[in-house]
Design a protein around this nucleic acid. Sequence first.
RNA 1: GGAGAGGUGGCCGAGUGGUUUAAGGCGCACGCCUGGAAAGUGUGUAGGGGUGAAAGCCUCUCGAGGGUUCGAAUCCCUCUCUCUCCGCCA
Length: 427
Amino acid sequence: MHDIKFIRDNPKIFDKKMNIRNADISSENILKIDKKNRELISNLQIFQEERNLLSKQIGILIKDGKDATKVQESVKKLKDQISLADEKIKESENKLRDILINLPNILDDDVPTGVNENDNKVIRSWGKKPKFSFVPKDHVDLTTNDKLNFELGAKISGSRFVVIKNDLALLERALINFMLDINTIKFKREEISPPYIVNSKSLFGTGQLPKFKDDLFETDQDKWLIPTSEVPLTNIVRDEILNDFDLPLNFVAYSPCFRSEAGAAGKDTRGMIRQHQFSKIEMVSIVHPKDSDSKLEEMTNHAEHILIELNLPYRVMLLCSGDTGFSSKKTYDIEVWLPGQNSGLGQYREISSCSNCGDFQSRRMNARFRDKENKLLNFLHTLNGSCLAVGRTMIAIIENYQDQHGDIIIPEVLRPYMQNKQKINFK
RNA sequence: GGAGAGGUGGCCGAGUGGUUUAAGGCGCACGCCUGGAAAGUGUGUAGGGGUGAAAGCCUCUCGAGGGUUCGAAUCCCUCUCUCUCCGCCA
């Protein structure tokens, strides 16, 4: 959410930034409402002040045993004016709020302008794409022996669900433990086991609501399935005032993630790439504003580190303006090489997304810290990133580590987590 | 699910309609006292908003939202969270 004071002071910059994001808004419109809003507030407060003074007088008069009916009559008249002014303000404030809560974050200056993912910028690449003496299969063709069972998922739950069995279930569990261990032991993140169901306040805080309601699974009574554990992790600091010396907070969590994929009908229908439910290890950092830029680099490096350990080729993309998420001011996607995609020609697919949300979420959450130097309150900066998406990491391992027999060589770093097995056989 | 008790400042806690303009204590900050410290003592100590160059002035907030009233922490309604007991349960 945007600071109305910023818009007041920098209307031209604001317009330019919103224009880059194709947001249909002008500061002129916003400031008009804001001005009217403030007039109404001043007006109301004059009435309130008078009411308070007169009411106090009534109290004194009654105490002294004097007649107060005359004063009471005049305050009664004020009452109507107050409630009328109150209504007007609510209307005007809601109008302003409706606009502000639906506007995306202001992008960093180094975010390239562009329309869609084709305009994203390659920052760096790592790893050697594996060379096969045969046409590599994708994960669906490799796992036809029931270990990845989409028919069963469809029967039990519906489309975009999968039942993972046997060694692959073990692989998923191994990856979760492996990634959590690196995050906690090596990167010193605090492990959190969060709720997988959250209320709408939390979803508003991180920016999924109200605009992206359709992407979520709603249960009842204001309870929603999390689309990512970014939501519960970031909302840990909602409505809190932290001390600057307690910063940064670095969290990591495993959770399943639930997405309705409403806007993705017909997209990635094959295989496990896009499911309604998937596992993810998520990093969230809560930092002093001066540290958020460097923290984004660090988090991206941490996500890359997992891929390096697993020896999976990847590239880091800086998302362009058209592809950057609503709450983010700058996002790096990490794309892993999937050799079985595109009929064996291979394809890069997103496996992590690391975002610096600046103070955008913390304004929505009212998450602040006290600066010891000047004792002032200020909004925190929040960041989130996958480290990594477990389902897609499984795909990457299956496709990159396949051999001529259609079996999977288990990456060495995972073997201690997999009863020291060397291979997953699909025959 | 049933019954009951609660939610007041960073924390504890007083407050059942009118100078509450939220007592008192703890904690914290700064000062005095002291050779230094403890003790003692004094002052200060929430957030949002409006206005203003600033100092300041005003306004809203006692879990949340409504209502009654000239006036609500206090009375009424709805919701929410916490605790205790019972039931069920991993």
